[in-house]
């Protein structure tokens, strides 16, 4: 079973919940797919056993063969290539704009004038944290899109024999879609504030569009504040868990710690319930 944890916005406690749940679900695989800001490792403190480069092909002009006709630059939909015609005869490449789509190589009329070479865009690190298998993607700063790296992580999720908990990136755009696209179930973490509710409603729309089974988890839940519960009831969405608002948790969090033991029995039940809902 693949379970993705998402939230409409950053800073709602998505990682806090993901790692708590992953620990309770062990033996399992935790994947940090929030590749621009992966911080699940801060709390799980894994022993990293392997680190592999994540690369994608990017163009390279071979000056001896290039006629500087500019076909590649005209075809590039992202304007990542610029060809300055003779007499200047220069080529400029903006790697932060390149999406590695391959159009430039496809349209180049000169054999061997434009080749594709791998460019490192990030790393995938794997290791272990107690009973838990750990994996995280780290995207290099300045890369235009997180989607390809997340796609590579999700491929590993599919091939894993066992349960997988995916800590998705925040928001509702393409990277999140990628991180929940393979999921059997999606958990949405929200805070009980008007902003939190608004962002939750956006991500609910997204998972509905993707036709996923999903439920809500409330973080920083306060006595008497039923903002999210009321919404969930109206929408017919189950609320599976609440992490209480607690200064003790905030203090632990700032030191890179979390009260794993405290919630473990409850979270084991939550996990069993999700499995029932999936099957």
């Amino acid at each position: 079973m693949i379970l993705s944890v998402a939230s409409g916005k950053g800073g709602t406690g998505k990682t806090t919940f993901s790692v708590l749940l992953a620990r309770a679900a062990a033996p399992a695989l935790y994947i940090d797919a929030d590749v621009e800001e992966p911080n699940g490792g801060i709390f799980l403190k894994p022993e990293i056993e392997r680190e592999e480069d994540f690369t994608e092909p990017v163009p390279r002009i071979i000056p001896e063969k290039c006629t500087y006709c500019g076909e590649c630059a005209r075809a590039c939909p992202y304007k990542a290539l610029v060809i300055i015609p003779p007499p200047a005869k220069k080529d400029l490449f903006f790697p932060e704009l390149c999406h590695s789509c391959g159009v430039c190589a496809y349209v180049c009329p000169e054999q061997g004038a434009l080749i594709e070479v791998p460019r490192k865009k990030g790393v995938i690190r794997t290791g272990r944290s107690g009973q838990l298998d750990f994996m995280e993607g780290i995207l290099n700063i300045g890369e235009p899109t997180a989607v390809p790296l997340i796609k590579a992580l999700m491929k590993k999720a599919r091939n894993y024999k066992g349960d997988v908990i995916v800590d998705a990136p925040p928001g509702t755009s393409c990277p999140v879609v990628e991180a929940v696209s393979e999921a059997d179930f999606v958990l949405l973490v929200a805070e009980p504030t008007p902003f939190g509710l608004h962002d939750l409603s956006l991500v609910v729309e997204m998972v509905r569009e993707l036709d996923k089974k999903f439920a809500i988890v409330i973080n920083k839940a306060q006595e008497g504040n039923t903002l999210v519960e009321d919404y969930a009831r109206r929408q017919g969405i189950p609320v599976l868990f609440k992490i209480p608002f607690s200064e003790e948790i905030a203090r632990m969090y700032s030191k890179g710690e979390l009260p794993f033991g405290e919630f473990e029995p409850q979270l084991k039940e939550v996990f069993a319930r999700i499995r029932e809902m999936v099957e």
């Binding site: 630059a73 992202y78 304007k79 990542a80 300055i84 015609p85 903006f94 704009l97």
Partner: peptide, 13 residues
Amino acid sequence: QTAVGISLAQRVI
């Protein structure tokens, strides 16, 4: 959508 500066710079050339 993107890289409008590069596109217009190419136009200057």
